[in-house]
Write a protein that binds this DNA or RNA. Structure first.
Lengths: 184, 184, 184, 184
DNA sequence: TATGAATGAGCATTCATTCAT
DNA sequence: AATGAATGAATGCTCATTCAT
């Protein structure tokens, strides 16, 4: 019997390593060699888990998006109270982890301009997030819920983008203040 | 007598070509060969205008940001009336040209995470834009002007980001509506 | 008790699979993975039967040559009558099986130019065939027997080579006609 | 103005180097690195002359076949006398040069089994040779001319194949004797 | 015996860069 | 100024081989 390996976990490890490399060196710095080294493996080992680079990148994006959502879900479950405010706050790049997610998202956003598969993954994640936010606004079933969700997400995204461009200016505290102001 | 060439104009042409390639193929699809071909030149010709690839990319980003600003300045001068509303509207990816600028911006945003030179260029452009917006709000010299400018830019950026991720949903008309709503 | 496996038979199976792959994809398309897959095994299983790739290839050649001879011997035994004519006819690539043998032979012929082991295997097979043919000519013990055998083998090989290069032109029927003409 | 290079000559040089490597190491030993090194270049230089490996290999085969023919044409022109005998004699692997051509031909013969482009090149060369031989037989316009040409080519090929398999036995002298005998 | 994880070298190919012309 | 030949390093990927299970 061959060595037993948890393939899913290994794929996740590799995707996390890929995310780190992308955040550090940009998406074109994310060579298979570099990703493998970051994860503590050799290039050849990647091949057991991803048929090619495209697959690795798509999985990395998907993984980053999933993780963001699932971490939040866990926290919501723990506190038994998912409010609009906490949901939006957690989307801001106020922690190293969130900053990583955001940089990866942006790296793929540009890439997705010419890649329909990546574009689709991001589109789906975006729509999912909007639904979640819409379900948390004051009148979730009202006609304006979706629009309110969009407004709030725009607010969060706008703050996040500025924070990523100018991190010295945009401390976590300031990001949060800006969000609170926007929430009214 | 050597051929007279307007070096600055040539650099701009090449930067524009680079922007198109980046938007089409991603930043890692922007090889010198490809950029040169897009501009109608050979690789070797690039070398007279940019010492290396880094310089070309930095200039491409700078150029894209400058162009955005100067085009707007021209239009403001023509109408002799730069209002907050027109300034913000013109920042949205409602036209092909603006979409191109946005994709380039995002492509470099991710890259800038690990490149201080690119980061600095973007930071400066951002701060310049904030000053301009701040000078157009109701009470430009009041203590809240900067914060209001940040709020408005966050609004524009947030709408733009969603529009880039989901262009089918976010028609130009909807982007504008969302902005007007936010403007109050 | 370990599973009982007929190692010799397994080696033959694998050699046959290798021959098929070589005929289909050329000798450089015959990777261990591909050969193993063709035989319905995994790469690692090969290692029990062949120490390395060289050994597999050498055995494949040997096997192809042996098989050709043994099949003919069987047929000769059944009919109790091995004539010069049937022996030579059976060497032509008139059937799929024989074509396979021929392509394998040619693939290794080129390879053998720089590999003394393969060259030796082929040389021995050639000499064996010549002896057999020589024993079937009119005056097997006469001084001209060997030369006559060489002439006949050259005839068969020449027809075979043309047939392999231009199979549409060289139908089985035409190959046989050309041989009969040459036999006089 | 860039350095002037005779591209056709360079392609020929490279093809000759490729032929030498193929004869020495087999077709799967003919890596671009090895071919480039044999020709005294680096891998990257190949790219100026051949878009990819396939193109290099196809050109190498074509080149080997062309060369064989043109060398013969030159000699025929010099002596102003192309006879059946000299034409066939020159096809035998009696010299190092001819042996090289033959080994290359065989290497590609096996490869051509699964590659229609290579197969077509060889088929055309074969048919050309047959026409030439047919035009030199006793009654070139008679109905049997083609068949006689095929018989003679089979004779040459058959001798050549045996000579390649068993060079020690098949000295140039013996090859020639065998051919003369067959010519009658 | 057989698997498949893992290695590390090697492959074809692309690329930024240099340079003679 | 501009070309394109040439380099050599890097890339994504394949492979023979080793080995724990």
């Amino acid at each position: 019997m061959p060595k037993v390996v948890d393939a899913d976990q290994r794929r996740s490890e590799l995707a996390t390593a890929a995310a780190r490399v992308i955040a550090r060196d940009g998406i074109d710095g994310a060579s298979l060699r570099e990703v493998a080294a970051e994860a503590g493996w050799t290039t050849g080992a990647l091949v057991h888990y991803f048929a090619n680079k495209r697959e690795l990148l798509a999985f990395t994006l998907q993984s980053s998006l999933d993780q963001r959502r699932s971490r939040h879900a866990v926290r919501a479950a723990m506190t038994s109270c998912e409010t609009l405010r906490t949901t939006l706050l957690e989307a801001l790049p106020t922690t190293d982890e969130n900053r990583l997610h955001w940089i990866v998202t942006l790296a793929f956003a540009a890439q997705a301009a010419g890649d329909t598969e990546l574009a689709e993954i991001q589109r789906m994640a975006y729509r999912g997030f909007r639904s979640r936010v819409a379900s948390l606004v004051d009148d979730p079933d009202g006609p304006a819920a979706e629009r309110e969700a969009e407004r709030l997400i725009a607010l969060v995204d706008g703050i996040a983008l500025q924070a990523l461009f100018d991190p010295d200016l945009w401390t976590p505290r300031r990001q949060i203040e800006a969000l609170e102001t926007g929430l009214g």
